[in-house]
């Protein structure tokens, strides 16, 4: 779950560029966390000790990291077993990939982790948080990091959106910081408007290969190629999400909104006349782009 924060944190602090972060996020599903990373995270080994063992491994490549660490007295057998049994946070694999890619050294990653821990107290959050709390924190983080103020409706909309991603697609995503956009190049894209006192245009766009994986998760069906059912899954998701939003607006705020007919906006460059926010949501199978263009909102400066 904490990938949702950690990726954003690295990006917003300038530790990684989008170009470095996105391929690393995509590789995560195939990555197994190593003893060295676990030892760093647990505090059993310092970055210098890990570097020394990995350097030693280059010379004695037949030996495992854990064997060499035990030989050097950095780890005990029991500690190795404990590390292998421990439940490891998913974001550690992200750090590990970035180290492997030469973006960080172990020492830099160690310092980043310490900084991240102190700022986010994520250890405590990790043990106690449910999806709802995590999504609320995610939106607050967005607001803080992107210096965007969201209205209560905007917050409700985004909370529901990320909850629906968790509910229908999976919680293994990293929601990158939103950016303001004047234009957006679409791939497989569906548009739907919400009309009324909270009027917005919404777009959901992704590459074909991402759409296939998205549809598999959404429907539970095995799609091997892009077809009309795959595209309909994108339509269905956005329609369902917007439908649920206007039900909530009606039930919780007594505000009656309507949703428009879905339209395909494939492979085009959308130019926005109003303020538009792009929310990239990075799953292991690809990036899902959600765009919200402000239409009829009383305060047009906020979402």
């Amino acid at each position: 779950m904490y990938n949702q924060f950690f990726g954003n944190y690295l990006f917003s602090k300038g530790y990684v560029t989008k170009e470095q972060l996105i391929p690393a996020l995509m590789r995560q599903k195939d990555e197994i966390v190593r003893v060295s990373t676990l030892a760093l995270y647990s505090g059993y080994m310092s970055p210098e000790e890990i570097e020394s063992i990995t350097n030693l491994q280059l010379k004695k490549d037949e030996k495992k990291f854990s064997e060499l660490a035990i030989e050097k007295g950095f780890l005990t057998q029991d500690q190795v077993l404990e590390l292998l049994d421990a439940e490891c946070p998913a974001f550690l694999t992200l750090g590990q990939i970035l180290i492997d890619n030469g973006i960080f050294t172990y020492e830099e990653f160690f310092n980043i982790l310490a900084d991240y821990r102190s700022q986010n107290e994520f250890l405590e959050l990790e043990l106690n948080a449910n999806s709802k709390d995590v999504v609320q924190s995610l939106i607050d983080n967005f607001s803080l990091l992107s210096e965007t103020s969201f209205s209560s409706f905007g917050k409700s909309y985004l909370e529901l959106l990320f909850n629906n991603f968790i509910r229908f697609i999976g919680d293994d995503f990293t929601a990158l910081l939103p950016d303001l956009c004047k234009e957006f190049p679409t791939e497989c894209c569906v548009k739907q408007s919400i009309n009324g006192s909270y009027g917005i245009n919404t777009y959901l766009s992704m590459e074909k290969s991402t759409a296939i994986a998205f549809a598999k998760r959404y429907t539970g069906e095995e799609y091997t190629e892009f077809n009309e059912f795959v595209f309909a899954s994108i339509e269905d998701f956005i329609n369902l999400h917007n439908g649920l939003f206007i039900v909530n607006a009606s039930n919780d705020h007594s505000i009656e909104l309507t949703i428009g007919i879905l339209s395909a906006e494939n492979n085009s460059l959308i130019s926005f006349t109003n303020r538009a926010y792009h929310f990239p949501v990075c799953y292991p199978f690809g990036i899902v782009h959600f765009v919200i263009e402000i239409g009829n909102i009383t305060d047009s400066a906020i979402l």
Binding site: L240, N242, G243, L244, I246, V247, N251, E256, T258, I259
Partner: peptide, 8 residues
């Protein structure tokens, strides 16, 4: 059968 199940 609709996603738009508002009271109205």
């Amino acid at each position: 059968v609709s996603s738009v199940g508002t009271h109205t």
